[in-house]
């Protein structure tokens, strides 16, 4: 039974990855490829927020700033020092994680609405630093000519990353890594401890879970994901300026997580698909895009406060349990396991 389940899980993973790898070939087109790359980056960024909001129950509004740190660190190292992407990427990710770890300690003393405000403040401060530390960041003019990742030499052939297709496989690899890490966190003691803290901090403490420790871990992981997303963004667009990393970026990430279902591994992916791909597919003029976002967010929070992923999951389990009843299976179905929303606390 468990063996079969295990094999099924593996098969699901493999099919999913194969599909994602084949997507550019199925859909084709440079514009589609662009959307796919951007989507992957957004999913990574939103997954960071999902860890802290969905699993730990803390609303961080500083996601945009952390996204910026990853982008600027990597871009500056590459442009000013000429370092290779393969060095700047881990460095930028680590630097962002480290920043999260360091500021996490004082910041995580606050909770609820105060935590939201402090992180909002952090986002604003970071964005002003990007704007005003002109000697380093060049302020509003931004940093251009950020190099593509250096080609990997495999001896017989070398893989360059100056085309969209190879860059897509790069971000896809990063995305899979992030998804696997999140999946493992959700499945194990760490995730269970985070959810316990979201549910009831005092009760968690009673059972030996020290909330500050886990909150810092969650905030550090969240920062690392954001930093990675920022770095991938910088080397894809090859130009960065402060306006990409302001409060609006934090809000975009929030919208993605909430719409997709906070606290679900696949939530950010679903959210990104809906919020990036749907408006594009419907060919909304870009000035209506934000309006569409606002309406989607409002409707979801009002009628499905747990997010779309949760609603779909519930529907699926209803269908499954319905079939079970048809098979004269007596007993209750384990309905909404793992399908809790951000707002359960």
């Amino acid at each position: 039974m468990t063996d079969r389940r295990l094999r099924n899980t593996w098969i699901t993973w493999i099919i999913a990855i194969a599909l994602l790898a084949l997507l550019p070939i199925i859909l084709g087109g440079s514009y589609i490829l662009h959307l796919l790359i951007i989507s992957c980056i957004w999913i990574i960024l939103a997954q960071g927020l999902n860890i802290i909001l969905g699993y730990t129950g803390l609303l961080s509004l500083g996601q945009g700033g952390m996204f910026g740190i990853g982008a600027y660190v990597s871009a500056l190292l590459a442009v000013k020092l000429g370092w290779s992407f393969w060095i700047t990427m881990p460095l930028a990710t680590t630097a962002t994680a480290l920043l999260g770890f360091i500021i996490g300690y004082p910041v995580l003393r606050t909770r609820g609405i105060y935590f939201a405000m402090v992180t909002l403040g952090l986002g604003v401060i970071l964005s002003e630093i990007f704007n005003n530390w002109i000697g380093v960041t060049r302020g509003p003019m931004g940093i251009g000519d950020i190099p593509y990742p250096t080609p990997i030499n495999l001896g017989f052939t070398s893989i360059a990353f100056d085309s969209k297709i190879t860059y897509y496989y790069l971000v896809l690899a990063a995305l899979i890594l992030v998804m696997v890490v999140t999946y493992r966190i959700a499945k194990t003691t760490l995730g269970r401890a985070l959810i316990a803290i979201k549910e009831d901090e005092v009760l968690a403490g009673t059972f030996g879970i020290f909330p500050p420790k886990f909150k810092i871990i969650a905030f550090t992981v969240c920062s690392a994901f954001s930093g990675l997303a920022g770095c991938l963004y910088a080397h894809y667009i090859t130009f960065i300026s402060p306006e990409s990393f302001g409060v609006m970026a934090s809000i975009d990430a929030l919208v993605i997580v909430v719409v997709g279902s906070a606290g679900m591994v696949l939530g950010p992916a679903l959210g990104t698909i809906i919020l990036i791909l749907v408006p594009e597919a419907l060919r909304f003029a870009s000035e209506y895009r934000m309006l569409v976002y606002a309406v989607i967010l409002g409707v979801v929070i009002m009628y499905m406060p747990q997010g779309l992923g949760c609603s779909i999951g519930r529907l699926a389990s209803k269908i499954v349990s319905g079939r079970r009843v048809a098979n004269a299976y007596i007993g209750t179905s384990g309905s909404n396991q793992n399908l809790r929303g951000a707002n359960g606390s």
Binding site: T189, L190, R192, A196, A204
Partner: peptide
């Protein structure tokens, strides 16, 4: 209690202090 968890999940969460494996090995 942990109201939004299933009974079994709540019980497993309460097992936390019995854990001997580190978080990393677990991951």
């Amino acid at each position: 209690i942990f109201r939004n968890l299933t009974v079994l999940e709540a019980m497993l969460t309460a097992c936390y202090s019995k854990r001997k494996t580190g978080l990393i090995l677990d991951l």
